[in-house]
Design a protein around this nucleic acid. Structure first.
Lengths: 214, 214, 214, 214
DNA sequence: GATGAATGAGGCTTCATTCAT
DNA sequence: GATGAATGAAGCCTCATTCAT
C-alpha cells in the first residue's frame, strides 16, 4: 500500500522510515503518533511521507506488513515443518527459542507486532490482523494435523479447539518473554534467557501431559 | 477518582454516564473518544463532565474501576472457593459459565475490560491494570494452591508457571467467546452458547490431561 | 454597585468578601481572576456572589471603590490642609509618611489601588479611575494653590503643569516604596522604613530646589 | 523567541503580523487577546501562528521585543550622549521631542510599550521588562553622571535618587503626551503639539530649578 | 436568601494533509 | 520528486453565569 515513490527508495531508506514509524507507534500509539516526528527521525521531510503513503493509516498498515515480513524472513526459516515424524512438542520448543532470539534482536519490531496482535490499534486491528491471523492459525493447524497423524497429539478432540488452546498457551509464553523484555528494556542478560528457557520447557510439559494430579 | 459531585448523583445517572463512557471508549478508543459525545449520550452537559471528573483520563480510569466492580458484584459471587476438596477443573467450568453469562448480559462492559486488560489503552494501561492484574493473579494462585494441596493439580511444576499457563488458556477461552460475541453483535443464539459450553469442556480436558497422544 | 443583598451583610462578611476579591485580582488579574475562588476564600457559595453583585465586572468595580474608601478613611485624616500658611513641602513629607504607614499596614489594598491606577486593569480602568483621578488631581491643585498664595511655590508656571509634575514625583516616590513592599513581602523591617524616609526627604528637596547644579 | 519559520518571512509579513498582535493586545489585553483574530487581521491562518510562535505567550514576548527594537531604531539615534559638555536639560528637551514624534507616528506601538512598562500585562511583566528596565535605568544613570561631572547637575544628592526622580518626571511627561494621544485618537493637530512642547519646557524648568518660591 | 450543581460558549493548541516552490 | 510552510478542523478544558433546591 505504499506509493511507487516509496518502493523506489533504497532499501536502507525504506528500512529507516519503517523503523522510525514502528518506533513512533510503539511509543505514542496510532492517534498520537506524529507523522512529523517519524519524518524527522527518518531524516526525510514531512511532505515526503505523503509522497510515499496516501495517509497515516496506509503508513501504519504497511508498517505492520513490513515488520511481519522482516520477522518472518529473519526468524521463520527455522520454523518449517521438517518431516512427518517430527515431535510437535520438540517443535514448539524450537519455536520458542526462535521467538526468544527475535525478542533479543528485534525488540521494537516484536513489541509492535504483539501490540497489533493484541488489538491495541483498535480501528486498524481488523485490517492489519487479517493476514496475521490467517497465517498463524493455518500454520498451527497444519502443525497439529501432522501431530495427530503421527500420534504425537491425541485425536479425540477437535483439531480446531486444540489449535485455539495451543495458541493461547503459545501466546502466553511469548507474552511472558515479551513482558520481561519490555520491563528490562535493552538490559536482558543472557543468564535470564537461560532461565526463561527452562520455564518454557515446563510449560510445554504442561501442554503435553496436562496439569492434572496423580 | 471522580469528584464528590459525581458520587452525589443518583446511582442511575452515574450508571448512565459510565455506560456512555464505556461505549464511547469501546468505539473510538481513548484519544478519539469524545467527551462531548459521552455527555450527550448520557444526557448531561459537556461542562458537567468536568464537574464530575478532573479530565478525560480520570473519567477513563474510573470507568475501568466502575466496570470491574460491577462485573465482580454481578458475576463473581459464584466464583468463591467453596472448600478445600473442590476439584479445580470443575471450578474452571463453573467459572467459564459465569463468564459466558456475563458476556451474554454485559457485552459492552466485558469487551471494555478485556481491551483494558489487553493493553489496548496504552499509556493508561499501567494504572488501570494495577488492581486487575493483582486480583486475577492472586486469585488464580490461591486456587492452584488449593488444587496442589488436595492433589487435583500436579505439584512437580512451579505453581507460578502453572498459574501463567492456566491464565493463558483461560484467557484464550474467554477471548474465544468474546470474539464470537463481538462478531455476532447482539445476535448470539442460545444454541450457540450450548455449543460453546461443549468446547470449553474440551479445553479444560486438555488443561487436565494435556494434548499428548497415546 | 453591589446589590441590596450585599449591603445587608454584616460589615465583617462584607470585608471578608472584598479582601478576598482584592487578593484574587492582585494575584490573577481580572480575566483570570476566579469568582469561585473568591467565594471559597471568603467562605461563601459561588452562587451567593451573584446575589451580591450583578457580575464579575461589578464586583471588581466595587472592590476598587471599597478599597479607596477604606484607605481614605484610615489614612487621609492626617492629610487635610490645616492652614493657609503651611509649607507645602512639609506637607508632602507628612503625606509620604502616611503612605508609608499605609503600605505597611495594608499592603494588599495598596498594591491593588496602585495597579488600578497604573491601568493594569485595562478595559475597566476608565470606570475605576474616574473618581480616583478626580480625587487626586483636585486635591493636589488645591494644595498648590495654597502654596502659590503663601509664596512657598513659585507662580511663574501654570499651576496645572506643576500639579502634573508633582504628581509624577509623588507617584514615583510611592512607587518606590511600593516596590520595596512588593519585593520584601511582609518582611519589611522598621529600619528599612527609616532609610526610606531619608530618601523621600531628598526627593522633596529636589522638588523644591531642582536638580540644577551651582 | 519566534521560530525559524517566522524569521524566514519577508520583513513586510513579519511587520504585518507584529502590528496585528500589538493592536490586539492593546485592545483586549493578553488573556482576552485572540490569536485567531490576530491571524485574521494579519492575513494568515490561525495555525500558521503556531508555526511562527510556540504559543501566545511567546508571541507576546516577541511583540514587546520587536516593538522596542523598532522604536529604538527609529527614534533613539537622536538620543545619544554627544559630548561631555552637553547640558542635561537641553538633552531632555530633545528627548521629549523625539518621544513626541514617536507618539505621533507610532501611536499604537508607543501605547503598547507604555502599557507593558506600566505592568498592565501582569504575569508577563517580569520577562518583558527585564531589558526595558535595565535599558532605561542605565541610560538615565549614565546621563546624570555626565551631568554631575560637567556641573549641570547638583552633586550633593545620591545619583540613584536623582535618577529615580527624573524618571518619575520623564515618565509623567511622557504619560501626559500619551494620554493626549490616547484621548485624541489619530486626530491630534500640529498646533496641539506646539502647545505640548511649551508645556514640556516648563516642566524641565521645574526639574532644573525646583518649584520652590522666591 | 443561600447553595452548589448545571450549563455551554469560547479559545488555545495540535497536527494530518495540502500546496507552492 | 523533495521540501517545509500553510491550512483549518477538531477537541479538551475553563469558568462566568444560571438554575433548582
Amino acid at each position: 500500500m505504499p506509493k511507487e515513490t516509496f518502493l523506489n527508495l533504497s532499501a536502507e531508506k525504506q528500512e529507516k522510515i519503517m523503523r522510525a514509524a514502528v518506533n513512533e507507534f510503539n511509543t505514542n500509539g496510532f492517534d498520537k503518533g506524529n507523522i512529523g516526528d517519524i519524518a524527522k527521525s527518518a531524516g526525510v521531510a514531512k511532505g515526503s511521507m505523503y509522497q510515499y503513503f496516501e495517509n497515516k493509516r496506509e503508513l501504519f498498515l504497511y508498517a505492520v506488513k513490513w515488520t511481519l515480513e522482516l520477522l518472518v524472513k529473519k526468524y521463520a526459516p527455522n520454523l518449517t515443518i521438517q518431516n512427518e515424524e517430527m515431535d510437535i512438542f520438540d517443535f514448539l520448543i524450537t519455536n520458542s527459542k526462535s521467538s526468544m532470539k527475535q525478542i533479543r534482536e528485534e525488540r521494537e519490531l516484536g513489541i509492535f507486532v504483539q501490540d497489533v496482535f493484541l488489538g491495541k490499534y483498535n480501528s486498524l486491528t481488523d485490517e492489519s490482523m487479517e493476514f496475521m491471523i490467517k497465517f498463524s492459525n493455518e500454520y498451527m493447524l497444519k502443525l497439529l494435523e501432522v501431530g495427530q497423524k503421527n500420534g504425537s497429539i491425541r485425536n479425540d478432540i477437535d483439531i480446531h479447539l486444540i489449535s485455539l488452546y495451543t495458541l493461547g498457551v503459545s501466546y502466553k509464553i511469548k507474552e511472558y518473554m515479551m513482558n520481561k523484555a519490555r520491563a528490562h528494556g535493552e538490559d536482558i542478560l543472557n543468564d535470564d534467557y537461560d532461565k526463561y528457557e527452562d520455564d518454557i520447557k515446563a510449560m510445554i510439559e504442561l501442554l503435553k501431559h496436562g496439569m492434572g494430579g496423580r
